[in-house]
């Protein structure tokens, strides 16, 4: 047993479960790849690559750059953690686009003929939702900014307050 573990890298149960799974995978894959195997393989592996090596790095870099480029530079007033007021509406608007982009960008060719509905409403709706999300975020940020600055002014003028609300 110990020798097996040393050679294999885990217990025998691990191996049994994996072989069982691969058998089913193989059975389904033979059928999945029965027609146009190369394209299907590109779609299957491409799905993982597209997410892990393109989408995720892109949004991570976008998040980091927003942090870096838009940081406060020598503002005299106290800072308010602002990144989430940008991050949250971007994320929400982004997932809507990610899921419904074929309709939003009017890519679904048979849609209008099949359903007797028009496709041109989706871009406007998505933009309107995006505007509402960012607008709400801007209002929330403005309120927070006002609250923090007022508190800071009160701090300067009045007696020293406790500092545990500092970000």
């Amino acid at each position: 047993m110990a020798r097996f573990v040393r050679w294999y890298g885990s217990g025998p149960l691990h191996l049994l479960v994996l072989i069982c799974s691969f058998a089913l995978t193989g059975y389904a894959m033979v059928r999945l790849f029965a027609f146009r195997p190369i394209e299907v393989a590109i779609w299957f592996v491409g799905a993982a690559i597209l997410h892990d090596l393109i989408l995720l790095p892109l949004y991570s870099v976008a998040d980091l750059s927003a942090h870096f480029v838009l940081r406060h530079r020598g503002d005299p007033v106290p800072q308010v953690p602002w990144i989430n007021y940008l991050r949250v509406p971007t994320f929400l608007s982004g997932v809507l686009l990610l899921v419904w982009f074929p309709l939003i960008l009017e890519l679904a060719v048979p849609y209008e003929g099949d359903t007797a509905l028009t496709q041109d409403v989706y871009l406007g709706r998505w933009l309107a939702i995006t505007a509402v999300l960012f607008g709400a975020s801007a209002v929330a940020f403005a309120v927070e900014l006002r609250r923090v600055r007022r508190a800071a002014r009160a701090d300067e003028e009045g007696p020293p307050a406790d500092h545990d609300t500092k970000p």
Binding site: L24, T25, Y27, A28, M29, R31, L32, A34, F35, R36, E39, V40, I42, W43, F44, W100, P102, L103, L107, A108, V109, P110, Y111, D114, T115
Partner: peptide
Amino acid sequence: QLHYVFPGSFYRLHFYGAW
């Protein structure tokens, strides 16, 4: 969304892919 860009029949791809 009727955006049929995937390679082949949706039923085949989605069913076998699920397994």
